[in-house]
Write a protein that binds this DNA or RNA. Structure first.
Lengths: 334, 334
DNA sequence: TTGTATGCGTTATCAT
DNA sequence: ATGATAACGCATACAA
């Protein structure tokens, strides 16, 4: 059924070695024979078998992109935007992208020798054992904040500084009671966000001693409606909210609105990452910008270098964030 | 470096055949030897090589998921939501998902015998030659409206009826001048939407003879700001707008707002597909719902059956749509 | 129950 | 410049 190098060889009246040579562009084949071979390949509609080639060359030509499991993953524009960058980066290479969204897929994929390298979105602490990952012996690059002890190169936004900037921006606009809506602490991203929040509060002497952070169980807002409502209504003096992601911010805005609060009149909201849709919203979401596709491209570049045998230093590539003022934040009188 | 079936055999003092048998769970191996082999596999940390297995079994274990090229693809929640369903469906199987977002990747992927089947998001007419696709000889399922002459099974929303329902809903709320913001006609999706639009207009005797459809060059709104502005401002009597996708609707709302129109007071807007974020917006977007993850799952199921050698009838699996009334539509007095 | 041998499609080594 | 052949890791028909 499927036409192989052997069929081409027979049809062209040459050995498979010669066919292989023209396929891989290796020297050592006469112009005339090459032409003949090419013609036959065309006629027979020959297609190389990547699996067979991989077998002898000891590589698959595939890169695994591992996104966290959970209901909202791909739907979260953070991931899709970074993945966009990964895809663009991968385009310059010979590699294909094998994606996996669930833990079942992930184990299957990684344990089957079906990829040459891994791009790993920073998993929750409960998802992967670092030891298991290391044991795989595959070149790996992590995207997003990750445990300090990780031996893998890491490309990430400067989450802590981003949240710090968001708080600072609200402060400069007259806000004095500023809350943080954060993800679960099992995610390093949340840990970093909290770090930045505390840092800003301390510098601005805003630390009231009260706990104004809400830690959600999930990054999924829909599942956390009640706790957000409670958080908001129990803090009437709070005029500004910083969220650990734009996605969280969108959900928070919705909930606040249904509670009768208008944005930004009653409550200012700042997101994080400045996902593409943020600027399309009404009102447009103030956020802390970072080059998401750039992160994806850089992660790809790094992995490719790793694959080529390079040693990568420094291990941490941190992308700067910068506050973008839009319509969900307002100046308030003191 | 990498441990193979051969190493296991030697270490366990058996033949590779026996090892292969326990791996594939085939009968014909004594309990004692099986135990010994398993232990050695464990000790040596043996991992099967999918490529090698594929070579002999003539299959790769990979499914290609082809999404249209272009700037806004993964970022478009339509795709990510359907893909979510695909991933869930694929979880029940032994297949991995190989994604490709660019034409370069796509050719590479499809021409290399590195996948067993294809899930294809309905491409623009200029993107793929049907003949080329058929020539691949791979089991293929299309998601979304596609050319009639396609020989591939197709899973899709009932776009025409969806838009029809949206127009109908606006009509019932008192609207008499209703526009359509549509994608390019090179996409069958747009063609179907237009079809539903005309159908509704005719039934409701609303066809004014004027052309109230705006055909965008791209599904990307940001690039079409000017034409949308012009469209809106040149039709002051228009009170309702139906959009060919939620994404388009979000962009349209933003542009209308910056023009000083408030939604839904001055302009009612209805999206299509009811993407997850639609209900999270403020105001929440009225839309035409369809089970997007269900479409993904069904496409996967269909492809798996195709892969198993089944013949699939009917070729078209159409998912119903139904209007969801939220906050971007209002009743108007006659 | 267990082992031997062959072949899957390709690259690479070594002759010629 | 060209060809024969081993090897990659695995499944399987056939022998024992």
């Amino acid at each position: 059924m499927t036409v192989s190098i052997k069929d081409v060889a027979r049809e062209a009246g040459v050995s498979i070695a010669s066919v292989s040579r023209v396929i891989s562009g290796k020297p050592g084949v006469g112009a005339a024979t090459e032409a003949r071979i090419r013609k036959v390949m065309e006629d027979l509609n020959y297609r190389p078998n990547l699996g067979a080639r991989g077998l002898v060359k000891q590589q698959t030509g595939n890169i695994a992109v591992i996104v966290p499991r959970g209901s909202f993953t791909l739907n979260n524009p953070f991931f899709s935007t970074v993945i966009d960058g990964i895809a663009k980066g991968m385009d310059q290479t010979e590699y294909n992208i094998v994606m996996s969204f669930t833990s079942i897929q992930q184990k299957k994929l990684l344990e089957n020798q079906s990829v040459d390298g891994i791009i790993l979105f920073s998993p929750r602490s409960e998802e992967f054992q670092l030891e298991w990952l290391e044991n795989l012996g595959l070149p790996t690059v992590v995207i997003g904040s990750y445990v300090e002890s990780s031996p893998f190169p890491c490309v990430r936004p400067d989450d802590a500084d981003g949240i710090d900037q968001a708080v600072q921006a609200l402060y400069e606009r007259g806000h004095r009671h500023i809350g943080l809506i954060n993800g679960p602490m099992s995610s390093m991203h949340s840990v970093k966000c909290l770090e930045g929040y505390h840092q800003a509060l301390q510098r601005l002497a805003l630390d009231s001693g009260s706990n104004d952070m809400l830690e959600l169980d999930e990054f999924d807002v829909a599942a956390s409606q009640e706790s957000i409502e409670a958080f908001l209504s129990s803090r009437p003096s709070m005029t500004g909210i910083v969220c650990a992601s734009d996605y969280l911010a969108i959900g928070t805005m919705r909930i606040a609105t249904t509670m009768g609060l208008s944005i930004p009149e009653d409550l200012s909201v700042v997101g994080a990452d400045d996902v593409p849709i943020a600027s399309q919203l009404t009102p447009a979401l103030s956020s802390v910008r970072v080059d998401l596709p750039g992160i994806g491209r850089e992660a790809t570049r790094t992995l490719i270098r790793l694959l080529a045998g390079e040693r990568i230093e420094p291990k941490n590539l941190v992308f700067p964030m910068s506050y973008v003022d839009r319509e969900t934040t307002r100046n308030i009188e003191q």
